[in-house]
Design a protein around this nucleic acid. Structure first.
Lengths: 349, 349
DNA sequence: ACGGAGTGGTTAATCGATATACCTGTGGGA
DNA sequence: TCCCACAGGTATATCGATTAACCACTCCGT
């Protein structure tokens, strides 16, 4: 004899044991679990009952091998250089995704990578090993190489970002992505601010460019010019540096809009440390509506973009691509400004 | 004919194709990739090269089925009632774990659950489906049912918490867990504080009880009594409520120690909102040393417990249990107080 | 009475890699 | 010269489920 049992400590029951115990063929057991084929209801019941009794569930590897479906999706998180500021953002996203996966027995394979190349290599490996049925792509970039890559290697995916019918993979995101920043700027203008600055994320991210453009347009539409537009890598230290630069200026801005909440929080801290009161001396707006913002003092005015709901929607699209029977719930709504306490009337200085 | 090819869109090369292309048997290819058996170095090279050329990696499901090893570990995160305060904590943990998994080709399967029962059911399913090789158990509880459960179902696991040789599964954590809180209290006493309160986490968590006990002992050793000890569920709202209760008292505490950073941040916000200055009117200490704390104003004094390193150590223990060749790097060190700006001299009121 | 359509299953090939047992050639010691 | 050890592979059973194809039986209309 050749091939031998690896004999793991766990000797779990197999489909054969269940079939024998229920007095049916293994095919019947499989059908009972997959709701395929045609089984009389009593038979199905009996099979399910005996399986429960024996504590049996189909082996994930065996069924993945045979059916070429792993019931697992991948989420790759690219970490910026240092401590990632966008982190709580991902927690929210994961919550949204998991909410759709769990009830369907799907799993989420999470990976952390350092850079773009590493990320691509990882997708290639995941696809090549057949480890997942699909992947959620976050942070759409300008000229993003990933959709083409995933399409080439045949791994279903969704891209998070502005809905784009032209894209080579489905894109999921709230419509009218600029609305949030637009609203934020209007809000500040309404409060009398005339010198408004924007602290942006990395220029290669698509949403970053869009928001920045909307910022500039909205300000210019009011007959003004942006006080400043600074780019950062989303890191806390960059946010601090940008803020210091801005409030150190002779004509310092009376309001700063940040590309995400984490940076806004750093910005508030930095301003306060410099002796400025928020919002009296400086108004601050964030983006993401992280839970944290509600509890700070002052509470953060921010843009809610419903990351959780977007994550859930992305998961649904992907599940549908994987042949799951998922309700078509199109994602509606748009980013909305949540006015709290970090913004106030402009005070001439 | 019966069994037929499911014919997925992706028709990836198989081990057979590689074997043929390299002019060897499939067994040889397998051995080349698993560094088992005896292959001449040139042969191994050639196989690896042709595999790379064809873009082949062994199918995860097939090799999992045959070898009974999935090269995947599970991390189940139990979410408290509402927005989880402990979240950034998990991000750190995941970072630590992934750092060890990635270089070895392991994956991390992440699940979110609502309660303890759901968590147990999930482990049973994961084990029963053979989806993972092991699991990291977070938040050790008093009378934690999970170690026994995982031992019964034969799923390797590590428990994060105070090292305990008695435990039925290996436990990973910094030694002398109480040291951080002890140091924090000594620090406050040294600053002249006499009315110190503690805002604790859920009583059923082991580390919570330990820290609380250490808090009480240290205070009493100084001949004082705790100003108050309040239990919460780690949620932001509970932290706010506890803080409001404390600062509303006639004899309000001059310092509050929180069981984690998220709550401490909420506490600072709440105190400031009530018109108190931190640390002038109230000193605040957190626990975890989240990145965020460095950027707030005032910067948060907190206890560093090196969550990342603990996560990495846990992963190593688990990998070793899975037969991986992992260096025995025992985890040393203990929690340390990081003094920043949220604590200051007590002012009599 | 007989063909056709259901109903409710079963049979067996197959997914792709792994691991044990086996085979073959080469060199060295007795 | 013979035999054994050993290096360097190969042959194949096997992991545990899935699924297309098939089969036995009942029921019904004509």
């Amino acid at each position: 004899m050749s091939g031998t049992r690896p004999k793991r400590p766990t000797d779990r029951p197999t489909i054969k044991a269940v079939a024998a115990a229920a007095g049916v063929s293994t095919a019947a057991v499989s059908q009972a679990f997959n709701e395929k084929g045609r089984l009389a209801e009593p038979t199905r019941r009996r099979i399910l009952d005996t399986a429960a009794e024996l504590g049996w569930s189909p082996s994930a590897s065996a069924s993945a091998l045979r059916s070429a479906r792993t019931r697992t999706l991948a989420l790759v998180v690219r970490r910026p250089t240092d401590v990632l500021g966008a982190d709580p953002h991902f927690s929210e996203l994961i919550t949204g995704i998991e909410g759709e996966l769990a009830p369907r027995g799907y799993g989420l394979l999470l990976h952390l990578v350092a850079g773009v190349d590493e990320e691509s290599a990882l997708y290639e490996r995941l696809a090549s090993e057949g480890r997942v049925d699909g992947a959620v792509l976050t942070d759409a970039r300008a000229d993003d190489p990933r959709p083409a890559l995933l399409r080439r290697i045949g791994l279903p995916s969704v891209l998070l970002g502005a809905p784009d019918p032209e894209a080579s993979v489905p894109t999921v995101g709230l419509g009218n992505q600029g609305a949030g920043v637009h609203e934020a700027v209007e809000h500040l203008l309404g409060l009398g601010h005339r010198r408004i600055a924007y602290v942006s994320g990395p220029a290669e991210l698509q949403h970053t460019r869009l928001r920045r453009t909307v910022f500039e347009e909205t300000v210019e539409l009011a007959g003004l010019r942006p006080a400043a537009v600074l780019s950062t890598d989303f890191s806390e230290s960059a946010a601090v540096a940008a803020t210091e630069e801005l409030i150190g200026r002779a004509e310092r801005p009376t309001a700063i809009v940040y590309a995400n909440d984490s940076m806004a929080v750093c910005g508030i801290g930095t301003a306060q440390r410099a002796g400025l009161a928020v919002p009296r001396d400086l108004s601050v707006v964030g983006y993401d509506n992280l839970p944290l913002g509600r509890w700070l003092h002052p509470r953060l005015t921010t843009v809610d973009q419903q990351v959780q709901r977007v994550g859930a929607a992305a998961a649904r699209v992907l599940l549908a691509r994987c042949g799951e029977d998922v309700p078509e719930t199109p994602l509606e709504g748009r980013p909305h400004l949540v006015v709290r306490e970090s913004t106030g009337p402009a005070t001439p200085c």
